[in-house]
Design a protein around this nucleic acid. Sequence first.
DNA 1: AAAGATTGAAATTTCAATCTTG
DNA 2: CAAGATTGAAATTTCAATCTTT
Lengths: 150, 150
Amino acid sequence: VNEKCGFTSESNISLLFSLLKAAQAVETRVEIALGEVGLSLAKLGVLNHLVQAGEPLPLGQIAGRIACVKSNVTQLVDRLEADGLVSRVSDPNDRRSIRAAITEEGRRKYEAGAEVLRSQEALLIEEIAPVDRAEVVKLLANLGNETVVQ
Amino acid sequence: VNEKCGFTSESNISLLFSLLKAAQAVETRVEIALGEVGLSLAKLGVLNHLVQAGEPLPLGQIAGRIACVKSNVTQLVDRLEADGLVSRVSDPNDRRSIRAAITEEGRRKYEAGAEVLRSQEALLIEEIAPVDRAEVVKLLANLGNETVVQ
DNA sequence: AAAGATTGAAATTTCAATCTTG
DNA sequence: CAAGATTGAAATTTCAATCTTT
């Protein structure tokens, strides 16, 4: 088990490493696929929460939902605004608060991104569905072994 | 299912999102735990491959093993060298090649990092072992929902 | 003072270009 | 010219400090 990963069975470092490496490999694939429609996981995450919420959200709330620091959302929304996918709207009730509102183009991008995620998910499921749990561990290790060098 | 994630059952965007968010949550926990012993996953990854190899490795080969770009390894090894965990050694046979060699302190750090990973892995397994596959999906979604705001 | 947001700097990774050796 | 490594710049995220409003 795990020979391709360079770990021996005794090396207890292996399982968590393999898991994280596999996750990274999946994420890289998804990021590349999203990049082809001009999105990133971070951007799609914001659009997703705006669509789910059905209304403009304060930046701080977005930070809470996508689990990142507030200052990151400020800059992420800067980029989304530059892309024309969201716009900042001020809150009349609390002038400290600024909300991000998804635009029409943002909605179209969101649909495109969601479609990419669906196909990536189908790909992933196709890869892991037939095998049992022990096999999944092995597959995840293999997934993490793609050699990506510039 | 997946209510805490803000996704409806119809929203096919949910599964892959949940998976990646869960993976990110696990990675964040591990990075924080490693940070307490002065390591990162990237640094531990290099040390691990050097220990597994049992000999100094050319930087390009390290890039292949940890699946990143060569220029990243150059800077990663810069930092490891600054930490005193590895040292650069030149290859007499091919003067283009530079190898990273793990130091004694590097070995000690590696052991400390491996211990952290073992305990993190035990934590993770403790969290997911008792539940079945469907439950795992639910747990992963929950894992990804930790609210982390500055 | 606390909450919401922003700014500027630091850390890490990737990309493009360069330098040295083969 | 190809391979190995490095350098400098760009992208993204976090941290610390600041600014505005409550």
